[in-house]
């Protein structure tokens, strides 16, 4: 009889040289940021927040292979939900975060059910419209959102009397939350559910022919992405203490797309890697003065040309070369 080792599709964790180098690199980076402090801490905080957003977006765009330009709408629900509940109703930050996630999840369910009947460019345009509508609501519904004035005085994350005020502690907290998000993503990707999503990405007719209900799985992926987006919106509000419509506008769509593709769409850790790289890169090229935008764009283009599957997939490239060497073959 076939052993469980054969029936299990869960990949075993391989601590090869490339993985160890990556982990050491990440540890050195965080240690450096902690030691240097100052503005870099804020940059890394935002990288972790965007990382959470991108890990969620990866469920829909990476694993399931669908296009969504409107996940910023759910980040706005998370951000404004948290702000309103905490400032107006004195709700606990964690409770406000969870409540906003539930609202965003229900909104994604309601919006996604009809929208996800569309495919390809039509789906992309419909989700893009969703983001624009949410942006307009956040600008125009001033009695609720305070319009362009934005919401200030949002309390930091915390439970009861314990609040996380220290910037380094905020970064630790955000990093832990991003890693939890990554762990959930990894577990789900390698589950029966994750395989169904990846099958849909590979071939919708092929997946349906195996008994996978396409519409249901797409909707679940869309809702999961919305939950992550909402959480990132709430985390932004609690970390920065202020939100305005611009935070969740078109800029967020462009930035998160860049992060996702630079890191590696469809890979497990790619979204977080992309968020860190795309957040740090502007700081690195700042020394080029007025050419910094040109330098930033040029580096991004080079990354996409030479690592089209994302930076996270570069490690796999080295691994496959190593396997191809004749002396390493079994």
């Amino acid at each position: 009889m076939t052993s469980p080792a054969i029936t299990s599709t869960r990949p075993t964790i391989k601590f090869d040289r490339i993985s160890v180098i990556l982990w050491i690199g990440a540890a050195v980076l965080f240690a450096g940021v902690f030691a240097y402090g100052g503005y870099l801490i804020t940059v890394m905080q935002l990288a972790m927040i965007y990382g959470v957003f991108c890990i969620g977006l990866n469920f829909f765009m990476g694993y399931t292979g669908q296009a969504s330009f409107g996940q910023n709408a759910f980040a706005a629900i998370g951000g404004y939900g948290t702000a309103i509940l905490c400032v107006q109703y004195n709700m606990e930050p964690v409770l406000a975060l969870v409540t906003s996630m539930v609202v965003a999840g229900v909104a994604a369910l309601v919006v996604g059910y009809p929208t996800l009947r569309l495919r390809g460019h039509y789906l992309a345009m419909a989700t893009f419209a969703l983001g624009l509508i949410t942006y307009d609501i956040s600008v125009q519904w001033t009695s609720l959102t305070q319009g362009y004035m934005g919401y200030a005085g949002i309390p930091p994350l915390g439970i009861g009397s314990y609040t996380i005020e220290d910037e380094r502690m905020k970064l630790v907290c955000l990093t832990v939350l991003a890693l939890i998000g990554l762990w959930i993503s990894q577990r789900l990707r390698n589950s029966r559910f994750g395989r169904a999503l990846r099958a849909i990405s590979g071939s919708e007719p092929g997946a349906a022919a195996l008994g996978i209900k396409i519409s249901r799985y797409k909707l679940i992926a869309f809702v999961i992405a919305a939950l992550y987006a909402s959480a990132s919106g709430s985390l932004f509000a609690h970390t920065v203490g202020f939100i305005s419509p611009e935070v969740f506008g078109l800029h967020m769509v462009v930035v998160t797309f860049t992060m996702l593709y630079v890191g590696g769409v469809g890979t497990i850790a790619g979204p977080l890697v992309g968020a860190i790289v795309a957040s740090l890169l502007p700081e690195i090229v700042r020394s080029t003065g007025r050419f910094q935008d040109v330098a930033y764009a040029a580096i991004l283009l080079l990354m996409l040309i030479f690592a089209p599957k994302g930076l996270y997939a570069v490690g796999d490239l080295f691994r496959s070369r190593k396997v191809d060497k004749p002396e390493t073959r079994a």
Binding site: T7, T9, R195, A196, R198, A199, G202, S203, G206
Partner: peptide, 12 residues
């Protein structure tokens, strides 16, 4: 599903 392993294809 070309980017999946033989095992994953069979289990699917």
């Amino acid at each position: 599903f070309g980017d999946m392993t033989v095992r994953e294809n069979l289990v699917l």
